[in-house]
């Protein structure tokens, strides 16, 4: 378990989204077998700030799907995309 590191880009709903609250919501939403390692805020454009999460998941069936789904349904989230992937 936890042998694949996934760098996940999360776009908030708007420039007004509270990113600290969003981080908490992500922490609470993650499936049990996913391990959240760190967050990073990266400015995009015109006041929009994206959030990158580093999450470890198992190298097994389902891949990052459960993590993407869990984050994707959070209200303040516009989109979720895995932008980096590698075995630890």
């Amino acid at each position: 378990m936890g042998e694949v590191a996934a760098k996940i880009k999360i776009m908030p709903k708007s420039t007004e989204t509270d990113l600290d609250k969003l981080k908490d919501a992500i922490k609470n939403a993650l499936p049990k077998n996913a391990i959240l390692k760190t967050f990073e805020e990266v400015p995009v454009a015109f006041g929009l700030v994206s959030l990158f999460a580093l999450v470890f998941v198992g190298d097994e069936a389902g891949g990052t799907e459960a993590v993407e789904d869990a984050i994707g349904v959070i209200d303040d989230v516009e989109s979720v995309q895995v932008v980096g992937l590698g075995r630890v």
Binding site: T64, Q81, V82, V83
Partner: peptide, 17 residues
């Protein structure tokens, strides 16, 4: 990068990584 072995990561490698 050490690529994951399981097929279910293929989607990420094609669309995002």
């Amino acid at each position: 990068v050490d690529c994951p072995g399981h097929r279910d990561f293929v989607k990420n490698m094609i669309t995002g990584a």
